[in-house]
Each structure stands twice: as structure tokens, then as C-alpha cells.
Computed example of a mutant assay.
Amino acid sequence: MYIADQTWPELGDYVAESSLAVVPLGSTEQHGPHLPLATDHLIAESLARDAAGKTGFLCTPTVNVGVSPHHRQFHGTMWVDAPQFRDYVESMTRNLAYHGIDRVVYVNAHGGNVQHLREVGRRLRDDGTMYAIEWMWDKSIPDLVTDLFDHPGPHGGPKETAMIMHIARDLVREDQLEDARDGGRTTFKGRDYREHGARTFYDAIENSENGVFGDQTDATPEAGATLFEAASDQLVRLLEWLDAQPIDDLLAPAHADPQPGERR
């Protein structure tokens, strides 16, 4: 159920019966010469809408701009600073709580958002507002990703390329796949850019001239469909599990005994 398509009385009927919402988040950032800047938010929204449609849970509009300053040197990349991103997502999520939602899954498709969504979830849980967790599609199916691709890459690689081939093939510049591979890095390990234990880089362009990693020529629409269905299935299972949990079991546990001030 997509929230913006509903009327307010219809949403009243929903929150009278259910208390879970799905919030898709991504980014608007470079994904090499072959993929659109919309890659992350297209994947997040498509998976969130699909899983919500299968389960009947509420899906919100997508947060399309995320924490992406590490791609800022590439034309068109948009970002918000981390504190503003956290505050915006938290404020929007508290809005859902006001209407009766007490559990949220952030359907995320951008690695730069992960730690900030985790922090927002902690804030909301610690003050007893609700239980909110971050879910990243490729982290839900890691074995499938490595089975399908020899060089999946962390950004703009064949896994994202295949997903966009499945979701919106007309947006993939298929004539640029070899250039994407040859102008970027096929493999990437964080230790490649460390000195004496210190991570010495901040921006993607420092590691890849065109900003992408992996062998994009391995991507196919068929592989994208396989990834999409597997990830959607994992998300459906997560939503159904979360819906079944008593809210008291999800919120922060009480302080260890003795309780503060108990012996005064």
C-alpha cells in the first residue's frame, strides 16, 4: 500500500489494524558512465513497493538524496550532510509514529546511509518512540551475489547494473559497459589504500577514475531478475517477522538491576 495513493480515512483503517511502515531510501549520485544517478533510489523504491504490495504493509515516498559527499567530484551528484540527513529521516519517522506506526524498516540501497540510519533507529528506540531498522538489499543475499558475479564490486558493478537492467533497462547505457569496467577498478579492497593501519582516502575518485568498481560486462537482465526476486523475498520475510513481534520485545531493555536510585 503506497501511502500517497490513499485517502486519510483509508489510512485510518490501516493504522487501526497494522503498525508497520516501509521507508525506501537511496541516493542521487554518480554510478559510472553506464548507470543513471537514480540507481540507488530506483532499486530501493522498487523493492519497497514490491514487498509492500506482497504483504499489504504501508510504503512511504522515497528519500532520493542521501549522504553522498564521497562522490561529489562527479557531475550531478547530490548529497545532504550527515546531521541534516539524520534529522530529516528522524523527523519524518516521528511523523509516522504520531499516526500510530510503531515499527519501520528503512529499505536502503546506498551504503553511505547505513550508519546514519542505524543512529536514527537507536534514537527512536532509546526514547521509546518506535523500533526502526535499516535493511540493505545486497546484504540480504550475499551468497547469491558472489555466485552470480566474479567481480561484483561495491559500487556501480554488475549487481547494481543487473538490477537496473531488470527495473529500468532503458536507463542502462549498455554500450558503455566495457568502458565502465576498463575505466574503473575491477577489484577493490580497503587495505589497498591504507598506510600503517590508517585509511588514507575519503572520496571514490581517489580509488577509481570513473567512480565504479567491478566487472559490469557480467550483468544481464536475467541476473537482475534473480537478484530482485531473492532480495524481495528476504524483505517480505523481514516485514512479516517484524510485524509478529510484541512491541515490548523490540524496544530498549530496562537498565540492569539494581535500577538507578533503587537503593536510595
Results as ranks from 00 to 15, higher is better:
Met1Ser: 11
Tyr2Leu: 13
Ile3Leu: 13
Ala4Asp: 15
Glu10Asn: 06
Gly12Arg: 04
Glu17Arg: 15
Ser19Leu: 07
Leu20Gly: 09
Val23Cys: 02
His31Met: 07
Gly32Arg: 00
His34Tyr: 01
Leu35Gly: 08
Ala38Trp: 08
Ala38His: 08
Thr39Trp: 04
Glu45Lys: 00
Arg49Asp: 03
Lys54Glu: 09
Thr55Gly: 07
Pro61Glu: 09
Val65Leu: 09
Val65Glu: 06
Val65Arg: 10
Gly66Phe: 05
Ser68Gly: 09
His71Arg: 07
Thr77His: 11
Ala82Val: 07
Pro83Cys: 07
Pro83Phe: 01
Arg86Met: 10
Ser91Met: 06
Gly100Glu: 05
Asp102Trp: 11
Arg103Cys: 05
Asn108His: 01
Asn113Arg: 04
Gln115Leu: 14
Arg122Ser: 12
Arg123Asp: 10
Leu124Tyr: 06
Arg125His: 00
Thr129Gly: 04
Ala132Phe: 03
Trp135Ser: 05
Trp135Pro: 08
Leu144Met: 08
Phe149Trp: 08
Gly153Val: 03
Gly153His: 10
Thr161Lys: 00
Met163Cys: 03
Met165Ser: 13
Leu171Cys: 07
Glu174Arg: 09
Asp175Ser: 00
Glu178Leu: 05
Asp179Cys: 02
Thr187Cys: 11
Phe188Tyr: 12
Gly190Gln: 15
Arg191Asp: 12
Arg191Gln: 12
Tyr193Ser: 14
Glu195Ser: 15
His196Tyr: 15
Gly197Asn: 15
Thr200Phe: 11
Asn207Glu: 12
Asn210Leu: 00
Gly211Lys: 03
Gly214Phe: 03
Leu227Arg: 10
Leu227Ser: 11
Phe228Pro: 05
Glu229Gln: 15
Ala231His: 08
Gln234Lys: 14
Leu235Asp: 04
Leu239Gly: 12
Glu240Leu: 10
Asp248Lys: 10
Asp257Ser: 15
Asp257Trp: 14
Gly261Ile: 13
